[in-house]
Each structure stands twice: as structure tokens, then as C-alpha cells.
């Protein structure tokens, strides 16, 4: 498969009164055509800022310090705003977390949906409305033509998210960035939306970047997963490898902290001590070492690079950690066994 999007050494920071918020610290990754990449992390880990940086949808206090975002070889960070506007909503579609605030309450759904089609596709208003009606039916909103005249408040949360998906897919983007699209929704509606995106993806071949804090959702939708912590990618792996053989202590911690519907119930959850770091005042070197049960001296002296893990297998399993946690666990197991 060919690389569609190639992000190199992206750094984004925010200017605040206390200094700088180091939100994204040298993030590099690739997205293949038709692939679904999940980006996982807790709030403030830089996952949303990374993706907003790709299309430069950042607030004024933010600045991209370095990096390249190559979409089919063209660096989006070098484009002027006019050129960038052709990419946003054209080649790259976006869905945001909150379907309540991402639609304009004063404008009917039809006008809002027609706008990108008129702008990017040069359609006439009536063509765009006809296409919008089809798109609504495609995302499971029956009687699309009539509903185009309605306003956002007449739609439920799940329905609004369907409208957002229809809009983001309307210009047949090559990349769809979905920023926590199901977080604000109830679990039964979440399941509907996940199934819808999977179906649209399989039909259109769009590459999806799915940002979420919920590892369980990732298991069902992603081909590959990136785990972020404090603005760094700490682990990157094909989805099976990540769940069956996580190598970064943070990923292991996240998995242990997750109660599941199938697991043992009498057990305690394993926790990660402490809280995520303040991005203004990051720990020196490995950002996770203050909370890491495996930390060694080296973690406080050198920052680990994202490198292929031992016995990586196919698909490029990489982690940023000085410790081979499997070895530590084996030794601990052997020590416990010999007592």
C-alpha cells in the first residue's frame, strides 16, 4: 500500500502566561491509503492538537514549531490559506467530538451541507441539495430531502453526528479525521456510529484517523494504533499486536486499568500511579518515568526514541522505552517461582 499522509517531526506549542505548553513534541507517523489509524491517549496528551495541526486548525496562541505534513508529497504546512482551504473539507474531511456545537444552529441542515459541495465541487445550489439528500439517506437518515429544511435542534445527538459524517464525506476525501466522534454519545448510539463509519470506509476506501481515549472502541475499528502520552508517541503497532503484546509500560497500564465485560470480576484493577504531567513543565527525558513501575536510571538521563521492539513481527511495532518489559516480567516471574 502506498503512503498517503506522511507526518515528520511535528512540534506544536502554545504560548501561555506561564511559558509554553509543549503539546506535540516531535510526532512522526504515516497513514496508508484506505487504512484506519487510531490515536489513543488521555486528555491533554496532544492527540487532538496533533491532528488539528495537520490542517492548521489551531487557535492563535498555538504555533507549529517544526515538521512536515506531506499529503501525497505536498507539504500542507507550506500552503497558503487559500490553498489550504481546498484541502480542508476537500482532500481531508473532519468530524468533531461534539455534534451539538459543530453545526450552526441558525442555518438549516441543507444549506450547511450544500456549502462544501458548492465550494469544492462547483455544484449549483440545487445540485448540491439533491446530493445532500442522497448523502443523508446514505448515513441512515430517512426522508433526506425533507430533513434538509430542518435545523440542527430538530435532530438528536446521534443524528447530528450522522449529519456531520455525511458532510465530511460529501467531497469524497482521501483522509477522514474523526476527533472523538462517539465520546458525547450513548453506548447504543456509539455502536451505530462506529458501524456507519466502518461501512462508509469499506465502501469508499477513505483512510481514517480515529482519535479516541477509549481503547475498547479502537479494537473494533483500527488497523493500526498510535498511543500518545504528554505529546509524544510512546507506542505504535498493528491493532492485534498492541492488544496482545503491548510493550510500553503506559500502554500496559492503560489496558490494566480498563474493566471489561468479559474479564474476571473479583480482581482489583491495576492502576497507573500519579496523574498525567503538566505540559508546561514536562518531566525531563522520558515523560512517563515519574509514573513508571519499570523506570531505570537511564530513563531519567536520556529520552527514548520510538524504535522497533524486539521480535517486532510484521507491520512495524515500535515503542519508546529503554526497558524490555517482557524481560523484567520474566525475571520477576522466575524470582517469584524460585522463592
Amino acid at each position: 500500500m502506498s503512503v498517503l499522509l506522511d507526518v515528520q517531526d511535528l512540534q506544536t506549542r502554545f504560548q501561555v502566561r506561564k511559558g509554553h505548553v509543549y503539546a506535540v513534541n516531535g510526532v512522526s507517523f504515516q497513514l496508508d491509503q484506505g487504512e484506519t489509524l487510531a490515536v489513543v491517549g488521555e486528555s491533554g496528551c496532544g492527540k487532538s492538537v496533533t491532528m488539528l495541526s495537520l490542517v492548521r486548525l489551531l487557535p492563535p496562541a498555538a504555533s507549529i514549531e517544526s515538521g512536515q505534513v506531506l499529503l501525497r508529497g505536498e507539504d500542507l504546512l507550506q500552503l497558503n490559506l487559500r490553498q489550504l482551504r481546498d484541502v480542508r473539507g476537500g482532500e481531508i474531511g473532519m468530524i468533531f467530538q461534539d455534534p451539538m456545537t459543530s453545526l450552526n444552529p441558525f442555518i438549516n441542515i441543507g444549506t450547511q451541507m450544500a456549502e462544501p459541495l458548492i465550494y469544492h465541487r462547483g455544484m449549483s445550489k440545487s445540485e448540491a441539495l439533491a446530493r445532500s439528500a442522497e448523502l443523508l439517506e446514505m448515513v441512515g437518515i430517512p426522508d433526506g430531502a425533507a430533513r434538509l429544511r430542518e435545523y440542527p435542534h430538530q435532530f438528536s445527538g446521534g443524528m447530528r453526528q450522522r449529519v456531520m459524517i455525511a458532510m465530511s464525506m460529501s467531497c469524497e476525501p482521501a483522509v477522514l479525521i474523526a476527533d472523538e466522534p462517539t465520546t458525547a454519545l450513548d453506548v447504543t448510539i456509539q455502536a451505530q456510529i462506529v458501524e456507519l463509519v466502518k461501512e462508509l470506509r469499506d465502501r469508499s476506501g477513505v483512510a481514517v484517523i480515529w482519535i479516541t481515549h477509549d481503547l475498547s472502541v479502537v479494537a473494533g475499528i483500527a488497523d493500526r494504533v498510535i498511543v500518545m502520552y504528554a505529546g509524544y508517541i510512546v507506542e505504535e503497532a498493528p491493532v492485534d499486536a498492541l492488544f496482545e503484546d503491548p510493550r510500553h509500560p503506559y500502554t500496559v497500564g492503560l489496558m490494566g486499568a480498563l474493566p471489561s465485560l468479559a474479564g474476571e470480576t473479583g480482581t482489583r484493577l491495576t492502576t497507573i500511579g500519579g496523574s498525567p504531567p503538566d505540559l508546561v513543565d514536562l518531566p525531563e527525558f522520558c515523560p512517563f518515568h515519574p509514573r513508571c513501575p519499570y523506570a531505570i536510571d537511564r530513563c531519567r538521563k536520556e529520552n527514548p526514541m520510538l524504535e522497533p521492539v524486539i521480535d517486532a513481527g510484521d507491520g512495524g511495532h515500535r515503542a519508546a522505552c529503554w526497558v524490555d518489559i517482557r524481560e523484567v516480567e520474566l525475571e520477576a516471574g522466575a524470582a517469584a517461582g524460585s522463592v
Partner: peptide
């Protein structure tokens, strides 16, 4: 229905 809507944190089972 509620139980079936909950995603399973295991990719092989999910598929």
C-alpha cells in the same frame, strides 16, 4: 442490546 453495543477491548473477538 445494551450489552451488545459495548465494544470489546480485543480486536480478534471484535472482528
Amino acid at each position: 442490546a445494551l450489552l451488545l453495543s459495548v465494544p470489546v477491548p480485543n480486536p480478534r473477538q471484535e472482528r
